[in-house]
């Protein structure tokens, strides 16, 4: 082999970098803006919050007073925060399966329709496009208002009951309001994801099963659900993250000019209140809190994933 001139060597290096037909270049051209955006608006802020969480960072983003784990200790010994975490672990354990079952139920029903499928799919999906704030206002001011003119109270009175103060906090009915609103807003979206999953199951599998005499429940249990596992895993993960990140509908249903009640308080609402809620701007506490919530999401997310995919591992 005779040695190539330096320029030719450089050109070949460049050619490798560019890739066939300049594919690598195009890849970089398309991906770089998003990576840059992610870096600037997501990863750097995450790292910066982690950094701030070890400082006394009130009204500053360049703190100088290192406080070690003090912010973490402060939050973990805060009874309201402890309570909020416990309630929302329980809430996740309840709302994730409930939303999943409702979405799957709707998806299966719609999938079986021979006419009007597109119409019903849109009808159930439309709430997804509705603002959480606006929906919360409607729930709070007209459906579940504590006064006698609200829709729910008119129904209750029609059935011979007394006016209920739904969101007042003297009873537990606010959970009904919160859960019904959340389901109305979210079920349609996950339904669409699951319908997409259902459409990917080949019909000949069902035909083969039908020839073997499988119907109804058995088809669902042994064909549909296993084939839907990939969608299920994704939907459950999104639901779990969503449960821990609950904010908008809670804040707008229960919050008021004087703050937020101690019950049904999502961790993020609590963190918002104590770090940014009044006139203060305590970025150290806020940073520590988000780290704690992130750790919880990662832990429960991994656990859930492990549980859901257990069957696969067994089969494998």
């Amino acid at each position: 082999m005779s040695q190539l001139p330096a320029s030719a060597q450089g050109a070949s290096w460049w050619r490798t970098l560019r890739g066939f037909q300049g594919r690598n270049l195009w890849f970089a051209a398309f991906v770089a803006p998003f990576v840059l955006g992610l870096l600037v608006f997501v990863y750097i802020p995450i790292a910066w919050s982690a950094y701030l969480s070890f400082f006394d960072a009130r009204n500053t983003i360049n703190p100088t007073r290192f406080v070690g784990l003090q912010n973490y200790r402060y939050l973990l010994t805060d009874p309201l925060f402890q309570n909020s975490l416990l309630v929302f672990i329980a809430f996740a354990g309840f709302i994730v399966p409930l939303t999943y079952v409702c979405s799957l139920g709707l998806a299966l029903l719609l999938n079986g329709l021979t006419w009007g499928q597109a119409f019903f799919r849109s009808a159930f999906f439309i709430p997804t496009a509705c603002s959480y704030v606006i929906a919360a206002m409607i729930w709070r001011l007209s459906f579940f208002n504590g006064a006698r003119f609200s829709l729910a109270n008119q129904l209750v009175r029609g059935a011979g009951g007394d006016n209920v103060n739904w969101l007042g906090g003297t009873n537990y009915w606010y959970w009904l309001v919160l859960v019904s609103l959340r389901l109305w807003l979210q079920v349609g979206f996950y339904m669409i994801l699951l319908i997409a999953g259902l459409n990917r199951i080949p019909t000949d599998t069902y035909e083969a099963a039908a020839l073997d005499g499988a119907t109804g429940w058995r088809t669902l249990r042994y064909i549909t659900l296993p084939q839907l596992r990939a969608s299920t895993v994704a939907v459950l993960m999104l639901l779990l993250i969503g449960a821990f990140q609950a904010f908008d509908e809670f804040y707008n249903l229960l919050g008021s000019i004087s703050g937020y009640p101690p019950y049904a308080r999502p961790p993020l609402v609590h963190l918002y209140l104590i770090s940014l809620g009044g006139q203060q701007q305590d970025l150290g506490l806020g940073g520590a809190g988000t780290m704690i919530v992130t750790a919880l999401i990662v832990f429960f997310g991994l656990t859930q994933n492990w549980l859901v995919t257990r069957a696969d591992r067994r089969a494998g």
Partner: peptide, 17 residues
């Protein structure tokens, strides 16, 4: 803010619950 929040929470717990 956190102190006011803790106080208001306690008031609600006493009066309503």
């Amino acid at each position: 803010g956190p102190l006011g929040d803790a106080f208001n929470a306690a008031v609600i717990n006493v009066v309503k619950r």
